[in-house]
Design a protein around this nucleic acid. Structure first.
Length: 928
RNA sequence: GCCCGGAUGGCGGAACUGGUAGACGCGCCAGACUCAAAAUCUGGUAUUCGCAAGGAUGUGCAGGUUCGAUUCCUGUUCCGGGCACCA
């Protein structure tokens, strides 16, 4: 009886399906555990071996927790809206709904092949109306809420209106009100109004004011506008200022956009990281993204003009060293302050900056800028300071204006040197004129009332002074900006918003879902609007023509899995109270700041409004690494049809060509398959071989179709079985780490499963297993394995767990152990990793009931205790020999034993050792 | 440019809290079985000097701390991920 994995896997997959083995109940007394994979986007090219890495890890953990007695929620679904389907529709005329459904079917077949324990009755798709109805509903909650800074939580907008009617907005001023464009002549645009003021405003004004508070709001923002294509482009569709397709110029254009006021949550998003079990690296990335800093906003009057520039600085202590100001080129004041002489130069520079992406601007090493001709007055010493514009200042950060202190900031220093702006020294002898002093543990000099003070004291004093003089104030700033929440695209959730006379009104919740209409063309609408603007029936109702971005549906999907078929609410409160947070979330680091921050915000909003009982979605996060492709190359002698083997290429002038890794065995090319490859393009190829083999070149690259280095899991499952495939993916290395794929090694894992099988059955002799009592040696192997597998699984060290299984099977084979009492426990340990073979053998051993729900073996120390240990003995840190020593030996006994040792004596060369270091259970070091 | 990771034999990787570097597997070499091959099994396999016993070197690179460093510190090189409209 041999290991027939195909029959075994098919049999159990069918059994588990018909018996509903993976169906999860919301109604049980068992403790819950929620394991979640990051939502996949069902791309057209299907799964390659890189995708299931995290899914296998989560599957193992979910099955492990189930064996440990938990009710485990382990669902899967699809993030089905997105740009690629729409682009495919534009190119091929196939409706995104159709291509997406096809892609999902392929995905599902591939996933099923691998034997996951997903509860498919809970599957969700973001593009289903039954799902996006609730995405729209949550959007309405965001639209109808504001952030009360007094209570520090989101509240219904009606409450705010009630405040306005009673007391105006004096206690709740407009958040993030930008004052920098205010004329300084007393005409400062007021942001504060009284109750009577509010009650006197017309509807349009009132709604405009409320829009300043809503958590989902409409504003204006810049997009990548490509005139030639008549459309808005994503950042990765723009390369060096031109469109990727066609190479047409791309400029910034202001469009009406929806935003989420995530900045109101900046502090809580930062603070609550403390309670999450995420990697430090991940927390650090979010912290940097949120970018909390404290400093001051300082007003600089413009000489001869009735304007002021407000600059944000984290170093108010350097105010006496300000030598120039720099505005973002798109700053609204630029037009107002530029002098006639500088007008042409400024306009030219602004045009240049408009063609540049934000990333290009930040990465630019070359210094550029332009003087505006204007001067401001430094409030502390009345010094006249020239005002420049430069691309290194971004409009979106701080106030879009900086006070430049060349002797205290590297970029400012380079700028001053480049444009020959005189540099004021405020750091005394420390500053030599060569490099800016950026350290924060220094003393400032030449600085009026703060001369001689340390940085932090000086900063405090300046902030105090600014407040007293009314020219500035303390300010906490965040690098994070409000999240753009609209796209000028078709394939996304429509906004449940109607426009009347320029005012946005929400649809009734009972009117949801607002279904995405069919379109004949996916071409953009007029003026950069989305395709919905082309539909008469849509625009006649004055419906919003933007759609929501990809992250809308994925910001809350983990809640819908809990209660996927509820048509009364997005998720019943009782159900979300039971499942609560996701206990383990597995996915890639590429979502570090996007998806993970947005879902955290949505969770907090839903919590604030009382819809759920927890304010963080993902308690524990495990980041999986990428599986890279290992590409293979053939080398064609230039201008010929001959291909030369890798070892001989130095003798020829060759062109390197990607070859499909699936027709290469290791590094050896299957020449016959190569001749048939790509419609027999190389049918007549000639080969210059090494011996009788053609050896390919190897490089590690990203796994992608265009590089012919993708490997389809279906092929491997077909050849070796799902159990082998699962274990091999894990065996490849730590889940968190990126590593290249190598199909060759899978045979080792397959051999392991066959070897395991042979502990139970022999091909010729048949049944081997017995009911005999196990020996002490066998029990030791078993219990060491229980301990190791349990620890490794808990720590997600799946690769070492697989090798522990191999060691156990090797040892049991050496011991010729065929005893049921040992083997059946090994099977339970193996169930999360290789469920099919475990279940099969479990039943062959005569057990009834599924191995999926049996009890996990319990480790017992008494079987593994040893009385002595083989210690490594080092002389001066270099291991020279090994000595058996009883574990209960005293340090004195150990020292005597060690010094008496022949080899130690040889290395001592007659000298007495200075010291003998004995670390129990570890090692011994003799210092000479 | 900025932020976050990573680098160990021919290859993937192991090494707990600073304590025997290279577990396990692939590949390779040798042997057994076989007419032969596949499959399977057994042994060997970091580099280097040596017949051997044994020695020296060795965790990207350059330093440092320590009885002892893959592990901690400083600097540096290269590779991967993210940088706000890919998801």
């Amino acid at each position: 009886m041999e290991y027939n994995f195909r029959a075994i896997e098919q049999r159990w997959q069918e059994r588990w399906k018909t018996e509903g083995a993976y169906k999860v109940s919301n109604d049980t007394r068992k403790p819950k555990y929620y394991v979640l994979d990051m939502f996949p986007y069902p791309s057209g090219s299907g799964l390659h071996v890189g995708h299931p890495l995290g899914y296998i890890a989560s599957d193992i953990f979910a099955r492990y927790k189930r064996l440990k007695g938990f009710n485990v929620l382990h669902p899967m679904g699809y993030d089905a809206f997105g740009l690629p389907a729409e682009q495919y529709a534009i190119d091929h005329g196939i409706h995104p709904a159709v291509s997406t459904a096809n892609n999902i079917n392929t995905f599902r077949k591939q996933l099923d092949n691998i034997g996951f324990c997903y509860d498919w009755s809970r599957e969700i798709r973001t593009c289903d109306t039954s799902y996006y109805r609730w995405t729209q509903w949550i959007f309405l909650q965001l639209f109808k809420s504001w952030y009360n800074r007094k209570t520090n939580r989101a509240e219904p907008i009606d409450r705010l209106v009630a405040f306005f009617e009673k007391e105006g907005n004096v206690n709740h001023p407009i958040p993030n009100f930008k004052s920098e464009i205010s004329p300084a002549d007393g005409g400062i645009k007021s942001q504060i109004f009284s109750a009577s003021g509010w009650n006197g405003f017309d509807e349009a004004t009132q709604q405009a004011i409320l829009m300043e508070y809503r958590l989902a709001y409409c504003g204006y923002g810049e997009v990548n506008w490509c005139e030639a294509l008549g459309t808005v482009l994503a950042n990765d569709e723009v390369i060096n200022g031109v469109s990727e397709r066609g190479g047409f110029p791309v400029v910034k254009k202001k469009l009406r956009q929806w935003y989420l006021r995530i900045t109101e949550y900046a502090d809580r998003l930062q603070h609550d990281l403390d309670v999450l079990e995420w990697s430090d690296a991940m927390k650090e990335m979010q912290t940097n993204w949120i970018g909390k800093s404290s400093g001051a906003e300082i007003k600089f009057e413009i000489s001869n003009l009735k304007f002021q520039i407000v600059a944000y600085t984290t170093r108010p202590d350097t105010i006496f060293g300000v030598d120039f100001m720099v505005l973002a080129p798109e700053h609204e004041l630029v037009d107002h302050i530029t002098t006639a002489e500088q007008k042409a130069a400024v306009e030219e520079y602004v045009a240049y900056v408009k063609s540049r992406s934000e990333r290009e601007r930040m990465a630019e090493k070359k210094i550029s800028g332009c003087f505006t001709g204007a001067y401001v007055i430094n409030p502390v010493n009345a010094k006249e300071i020239p005002v420049w514009i430069s691309e290194y200042v971004l409009a979106g950060y701080g106030t879009g204006a900086i006070m430049a202190v060349p002797c205290g900031d590297e970029r400012d220093h380079r700028f001053a040197k480049h444009f020959n702006i005189p540099i004021t020294n405020i750091f005394g002898d420390l500053y030599t004129g060569e490099e800016a002093i950026t350290g924060k543990h220094v003393t400032v000099y030449n600085s009026g009332f703060i001369t001689g003070l340390k940085v932090s004291e000086a900063a405090e004093k300046v902030i105090e002074w600014l407040g007293d003089e009314g020219v500035g104030e303390r300010k906490i700033n965040y690098k994070m900006r409000d999240a753009a929440f609209s796209r000028q695209r078709y394939w996304g959730e429509p906004f449940p918003i109607v426009w009347k006379d320029g005012i946005a009104y929400p649809l009734e919740e009972s009117a949801l879902p607002l279904e995405l209409p069919h379109v004949d063309s996916y071409k953009p609408g007029p003026e950069g609007e989305g395709p919905l603007a082309n539909i008469k029936a849509w625009t006649e109702q004055h419906l919003e023509t933007n759609t929501m971005p990809g992250y809308a549906g994925s910001s809350w999907y983990f809640l819908r899995y809990m209660d996927p078929h509820n048509d009364k609410t997005f998720c019943d409160r009782k159900v979300s109270d039971y499942w609560n947070q996701v206990d383990l979330y597995i996915g890639g680091t590429e979502h570090a700041v996007g998806h993970l921050l947005y879902s955290r915000m949505w969770t907090k909003v839903l919590y604030d409004l009382g819809h759920i009982g927890f304010n963080e979605p993902f308690k524990r996060l495990l980041n999986q690494g990428m599986i890279q492709g290992s590409s293979r190359f053939v080398y064609r002698v230039r201008g010929t049809n001959s291909f030369v083997s890798f070892g001989l290429i130095e003798n020829y002038e060759t062109d390197k060509i990607h070859v499909d890794v699936n027709i290469v065995d290791g590094v050896e090319l299957d020449i016959e398959a190569f001749r048939k490859w790509r419609n027999a393009e190389y049918a007549n190829a000639e080969f210059i071989l090494e011996g009788d083999r053609y050896i390919c070149g190897v490089e590690v690259e990203k796994m992608s179709k265009s590089k012919f280095n993708t490997v389809n899991p279906d092929d491997l499952v077909d050849r070796y079985g799902a159990d082998t495939f699962r274990m091999y993916e894990m065996f490849l290395g730590p889940v968190e780490q990126s590593k290249p794929w190598d199909t060759k090694g899978i045979e080792g894992v397959h051999r392991f499963l066959k070897k395991l099988w042979r502990l139970f059955y022999d091909e010729q002799k048949g049944k081997l297993w017995t009911e005999e009592n196990p020996s002490a040696e066998e029990l030791k192997v078993l219990h060491r394995t229980i301990k190791k597998i349990e620890e490794d699984t808990e720590h997600f060290s799946f690769n070492t767990a697989v090798s522990a299984f191999m060691i156990a099977v090797n040892e049991l084979t050496d011991l010729q152990c065929h005893k049921k009492a040992i083997l059946e426990n090994i099977l339970v340990l193996l169930t999360p990793y290789a469920p099919h073979v475990a279940e099969e053998l479990w039943h062959l051993l005569g057990n009834s009931g599924s191995v999926l729900d049996t009890a996990y073996p319990v480790f017992e120390e008494k079987y593994v205790t040893e009385s002595s240990k083989l210690y490594p003995v080092a002389i001066n840190g270099k291991t020279r020999t090994e000595i058996h020593i009883a574990l209960d030996a005293t340090p004195q006994q150990v020292e005597e034993l060690v010094i008496a040792n022949e080899i130690v004596q040889k290395w001592l060369e007659g000298k007495t050792p200075k010291k003998v270091i004995y670390v129990k259970n570890r090692m011994i070091n003799v210092v000479v």
